[in-house]
Design a protein around this nucleic acid. Sequence first.
DNA 1: ATATCGATTATCT
DNA 2: GATAATCGATATG
Length: 215
Amino acid sequence: MNLHRSFSMSALGTPLPRAFFNRDSRVVGRELLGKLLIRREGRKKLVGRIVEVEAYLGKADPAAHSFGGPTPRNLVMFGPPGFAYVYFIYGNHYCLNVSCQPEGNAAAVLFRALEPLAGIKEMARARGVTVKNPRDLRRLTSGPGRMAEAFDVTRERDNGKDLTSSRSDLWLADDGFVPGQIAATKRIGITKAADREWRYVIPGNPFVSGPKKIR
DNA sequence: ATATCGATTATCT
DNA sequence: GATAATCGATATG
């Protein structure tokens, strides 16, 4: 079984336009499944297919960083849609989001897992892992902190970056791939509003994070 | 295969 | 001063 069947480097697709993100983050989240995250590193490109995301709303969502109003950290969430919100968590990890909804609504989608398609050597180096069998690929991009590290996403480098243009060095694209199926589950690792099923995955995809039962 | 726990620091109360 | 949208190591079945 070849997971890379529907991908070729010559067809990276077209960048997702700003209007794509100017909608409810739950809709954006669902529709981001199957799209591509692309990082340009000099002449190299890192490419991953999005297989897991979570939607965060603004004032309607106690789990959202924007729930309590704007602060220096969450300011990008209050700005226009289609921009990177990167935060640092647990003293260890960066996590990548994209701002959604009309400006001021402060919603976002958190990227949680990718299926690595290109630049795998570079991702492995950035993660400090040795890939000796296909199972090890999971450790590159399966989880929000892992995929951020694989793509060298940091707050300093990427927070506030426009993700809708390939003139940027980090953007999102549609190559026409359509997931066979989409599933919604509870979000991971939160204590507030923990019952809302705003985590979206491509069920059965091996790069979805977490224990087998929620993949 | 699943559960538990410690690490480590920016951010906000 | 407490908390956190996580990860990796270790322990146990």
